[in-house]
Amino acid sequence: MVAKASDSGKHIIEASFKLERVNETLESSFTLDVDFSIPAEGVTAVFGESGSGKTTLLRCIAGLEQADSARLTINGDIWQDKVTFKATHKRSIGYVFQEPSLFTHLTVMGNLSYAFKRANKALNNEFYKQIIKIMGLNTLLAQKVNQLSGGEKQRVAIARALLLKPKLLLMDEPLASLDGKRKLEILPYIEKLRASFGIPVLYVTHSIDEIARLADHVLILQKGRLVIQGNVSELFTNINVPLLSRDEMGTVLDCDILKIDEQWQLMKVAFNGGQLWLPVRLDILPDSQCRLRILASDISVTLRPQSDTSILNQLRVKIMSITPEIEEATTLLKVKTGATILLTRITNKSLSELGLVCGKIVWVQVKSVAILG
């Protein structure tokens, strides 16, 4: 369970849902049994395999599906408990589905105008302009929906949901219907959404990459039950997280952009524990922030700093834990620099030959080209 409001001083979303479905024809049943408290800010990813209950949970939160027993409060406002059940249209939510569900006979502007009529609060022109700008819709307003690409349609759907001024934005695998290229096109817009609005987002996905890039907090479901939750950085370095494969283990870092070296097309970033060089990203500006992901397999260990190496990034760290990977020739090390935990995978042979033990001070190397933006 994450920190309660009394612990952190921040608003929270508290939810508890128990629901059981029985399909007599198929002789099968499904049970949703979750209880959690999450920050009412940033993006909370809801992660799990198909059939784990992700969409069912969102439908319960939206009031589209009534659980056998439930409690839901948003910043202390009760939406559902033993005596209260707010209908969906009385819950201040925006809902973005896998498919955009736009009115195909209307223009982009026509679809957005529909949100004006349903908004719980009066819309001012500046708020409207902000959404249009952030979602990159200025040049699309006069176009018919059937003239848009899949990514453009989804941006319109997100803008329409935001124009409702919801207290909570629900996004159910919004990139699932897009190909790889379209996903890369829309991700920066969702990142801007996360940074520009104070609206908490519950984001359903089965993509580790989307979680690493967008989420602040994560709920992991398995067979209808919440098995683990926590801060995204903590979860990626937790070697016991279910559904996280060996190749996906690593570290997620939120960094400040310090400088851009135009000659070499590199940028220097700072995090709580050091600085890194990596290739310039086109959507990044100096004095801004970015999120990075470093896989455990892309960090090497040395006993002392190296001078004759092509690797630009070297960090002095302390070994915090050593965990052999059963049935593998490798070991996972948790190392710490500043307040940041990094995860690195090395061979058992290297572990032995370097004489690595908990508490030892060593250096790690990170290839600039291996850092994921």
Score class of each variant (00 low, 15 high):
I341D: 06
A370V: 00
D77F: 11
L303F: 01
K82H: 11
F17L: 05
Q66L: 11
P279V: 03
G338A: 02
L282W: 08
T205P: 12
M171D: 02
G53M: 09
V83S: 15
V364L: 11
T88G: 09
K181E: 12
K167E: 14
A45W: 05
L278T: 06
D298H: 07
L354M: 11
G150F: 07
H105M: 07
G359P: 11
T104W: 12
L140I: 07
L164K: 07
L351E: 00
I294S: 00
I371K: 02
G48H: 10
L351R: 00
L332V: 00
K318W: 01
L32E: 09
R182S: 14
T107Y: 09
Q314L: 06
L221S: 13
V22Q: 08
P242E: 02
T139Y: 10
L243V: 01
S37W: 02
G9M: 12
A212M: 05
L32C: 09
E191M: 01
L315Y: 03
D216N: 13
V2W: 03
T331G: 05
G9S: 04
D254S: 09
T139L: 09
P166G: 04
G110Q: 08
E353G: 01
T331R: 02
F30V: 07
I131T: 03
A122N: 11
C60A: 01
K165M: 06
G224H: 10
F85W: 14
V357C: 05
T323W: 01
V364C: 15
V43C: 04
R160L: 10
A70F: 06
S307L: 09
K54W: 05
K367D: 08
L169T: 04
I61N: 06
L312M: 10
K223A: 15
S29P: 12
H105F: 14
K349E: 15
Q154E: 01
L72C: 05
S177C: 02
I326M: 13
R304M: 14
V96K: 14
E20L: 06
A62P: 14
Q306A: 12
A62H: 12
L295Y: 15
Q80S: 11
D209M: 05
E49S: 15
I208R: 09
V280H: 13
A15D: 06
T84D: 04
N348H: 02
E234N: 10
V252C: 00
L244F: 13
L19P: 03
T331S: 14
I61D: 02
V83I: 08
G51T: 04
R118V: 00
T309G: 02
W363V: 07
F271L: 01
P188H: 03
L333P: 12
R118A: 03
